[in-house]
Design a protein around this nucleic acid. Sequence first.
DNA 1: CGGTCTTTTGATTATATTCAACTTAAGTGG
DNA 2: CCACTTAAGTTGAATATAATCAAAAGACCG
Lengths: 245, 245
Amino acid sequence: MQDGVDCKDCPLRRLEIFHAFSPSDLAFMREFKIGELRVDPGGPILVEGSRNPQLFTVLAGMGLRYKTLPDGRRQIINFVMPGDFIGLQAAMGGAMGHSVDATTPMTLCVFRRSEFLDVFRDNPSRAYDVTWRVATEEHFLGDALASVGQRSAIERVAWAMVRLHQRTAALGLADDGSIPFPYRQQDLADTLGLSLVHTNKTLAKLRERNLVSWVEGRLHLHDLDTLGRIAVVDPNEEPLRRPLI
Amino acid sequence: MQDGVDCKDCPLRRLEIFHAFSPSDLAFMREFKIGELRVDPGGPILVEGSRNPQLFTVLAGMGLRYKTLPDGRRQIINFVMPGDFIGLQAAMGGAMGHSVDATTPMTLCVFRRSEFLDVFRDNPSRAYDVTWRVATEEHFLGDALASVGQRSAIERVAWAMVRLHQRTAALGLADDGSIPFPYRQQDLADTLGLSLVHTNKTLAKLRERNLVSWVEGRLHLHDLDTLGRIAVVDPNEEPLRRPLI
DNA sequence: CGGTCTTTTGATTATATTCAACTTAAGTGG
DNA sequence: CCACTTAAGTTGAATATAATCAAAAGACCG
C-alpha cells in the first residue's frame, strides 16, 4: 500500500452488504492495492476498446458504465457505485467492452494488475469472489435486458428507481427514501432505451402521481411499494451480500 | 467419466475457436465430467429461481436462455449453442437468474458440481477460464442491451443475424451462408424486444431485399456485408478464441 | 380430416420519437 | 454587474414506429 485509505480502515468494510474480511483477506488486499486514483466529474476512467489492464474498486463517488455504437448512440450498461469492481475485462487480456466515466468526484482503489493472474494461483478464495461478482453482474445485465426489452416506458423508469434504491440503500446512501442520483435525464434515457423527451414526460407522470421528486441531484421516492408495482418487480427479492474486492 | 463421449474425443476440442487442451487439462476434464444428459426439444434444462447446483457444458444441440417477468413476459437472454457453459450461478450458491430450455435434441456434459469450489483451489488455470467465460458472456449481454436499447427493429433483426452467423460459423455449423436456426419467430421477437407481428414484418422486409431467407430451420444469409451495415456493427471484429470448459 | 401451432397479412391504435421552441440555471468575459 | 453563452430541463405538436387486434393460410400431427 502506498497512499490513501488503508484497507483495514476501508469504510466499505463496515457495510453489512459486504462479507466480513478475514485477517488473511485483509493482508492480501493491502498487498494487492497499490494506490488510489481521484477522478473529477465528467472524467474518463476506462475507455471502450482500450487494452490498458487497469483494475479498480470504487471507494467513493458515482459514475456510468456505457457502450457506444459505431454511429455514436450510447447505451448505459449500469450506474457505478462504491464497492463496484471495474476493469476486469482488460485485466483478463481483452479489450474493454464498455467505457466508465465519473459523474461525481470519485476515488478508486488501484490494484496491481500485473499479478492478477497470480490471484488465481495464490488466493483461490479471492478468485472465487471475483468470479462470483462477475456472475452477479451478468445476472443484473440479464435483468436490465429484460427491462429494456419487455417493459413500457413508465415501467422502465419505475424499475430503474426501485433498483437504484436497493443498491444505494445497501450502501447506506439512502436517507429516508431519498437517494443520490448524480445524473442527467439524458443518462436515464440512455439507460432505459428511451428518448430524452419521452423520459422527461414519463418522469413528469410519476411526479404528478406524487411517487418521485428529483431535486439537487437526489431522487426522493415517496412510495416504493407503488413504484415496485408499476415496475413489475418481485417485491420479495433482497440484495445479496457480496464479497468486497 | 461414466458414459458418453470421452473428453479426449470431444468433437468441440477440434474446433479452432477453442483453446487447445493441455494433457493436464484433459486429465482434469475427464475427472470433472461425470456423465451426459440428453434433453428433448422443448425440455427444460435449468429453471429460473432454482438452486439446484447443476453444471453443464453443451456438447450438441441448441436451446434458449431466458428470463420471465412476474407477469409472464419473456426476455430471451441468449441462444445456447455447443461449447456454452451453463448453470454457473447455481453452482456458486445462488439461484438461477434465468431458465434454459432445449429447442433441438441436446446433449450436455454433466460436471461434478460438489467440487466446483475445489476447482479454484486445485486448478487455478481452469478457474481463470471460468471467470474469463463469464466476463465474456457479460460483454455479450452488454452488446445485446445496446441492441435492444438503441437499435431500430430492422437493425435489431440484422444484428441478431450477424451475431448468429459469427457464433455458428466459429462452431463449424455454417454452410455457405446458411446457419441453423431452430427457433420460432416468437423466440426472435422475445430476444429483440419486439412483438411477434412486427418481427414477422421486419423479416419480410429483409426477405424482399434478398438479404435473408429462412427455410426448414435454417437461415440463409445472402449478403452479410449489407446485413452488417444495416445492423450498425463494426465489421472488423472477429470472434475471440476461448477456453472450453 | 380436425385440431393445434406457426406464420403471414391488413387495419387500427398506442406508444414513443422527432422537431422546435422556450425556460432556467450556471458560467464567462467585457 | 450585466450581456452572452452553454447545458439541462420542460412543453406542445407533428410524425414515425411498433403494438395490438383480427383473420386467414400453411404446416404438422394424430
